[in-house]
Amino acid sequence: MRFKHVFSIIGPVMVGPSSSHTAGAVRIGRVARQLLGRQPEEAEITLYGSFAETYSGHGTDLALVGGLLDFDTDDERIPEAFAEAERRGMRFAIKPGSGTMPHPNFAEITARAGGLEASVQGASIGGGNIEIYSLNGFDTGCSGYYPTLAISHEDRVGVLASITGTVSRSGLNIGFMNLSRKERSGAAMTVVESDRRPDEELLEALRKLPHVERVSVIDVT
């Protein structure tokens, strides 16, 4: 089921004009921001399909930049997102991409700050709902319906068990889970969608696990 519950149909509350091109775009931008874990200093945004054709009329550019500033879909500062980005010193470039992507409303974002980089590929599937196709180049994503842990780690025996053990000890229920690696014994990413937002204590515990490099919380619910 692509759409999970009643508020994915009635909702979100948002500033117009388009749920796909504005609200969904805010959320994709926000996923990139949260994956990075801090205010980006610079961002590159590539738009595909209908996003590329019609972005400026829908304020998709403002919305994506607003998301990178951690705005929610109903933030009335979205129309002034460019000015706010300038105030916060965030540089950004928006360009249309070519080629066929898995969805007509598709965006790729790379955000950087303090030597860190985060990248996201996501689609806006209608009604403000999104589908994230890849995180930091890993072939794994999330739906944005649930608070989500994105954990970068090495591909080693027992890492997944230690992650799920730590999560379960904190009392958090795992709804969906996905692991992807780039190569054997190389870098890997585990994505955990849970029923409530993970607390700081859990994040600290996860960060201390052997072979775990970075832990981000993505919450655009």
């Binding site: 009635i10 509350v13 117009g16 004009p17 749920s19 109903d74 403000g128």
Partner: peptide, 21 residues
């Protein structure tokens, strides 16, 4: 019209169709 002016609405199910309900 409020939607087209970047005002606040509820997507029902989308912003493009937010007036009908």
């Amino acid at each position: 019209e409020v939607n087209a002016s970047m005002g606040r609405i509820v997507a029902t199910p989308t912003a493009g169709s937010c007036g009908i309900i």
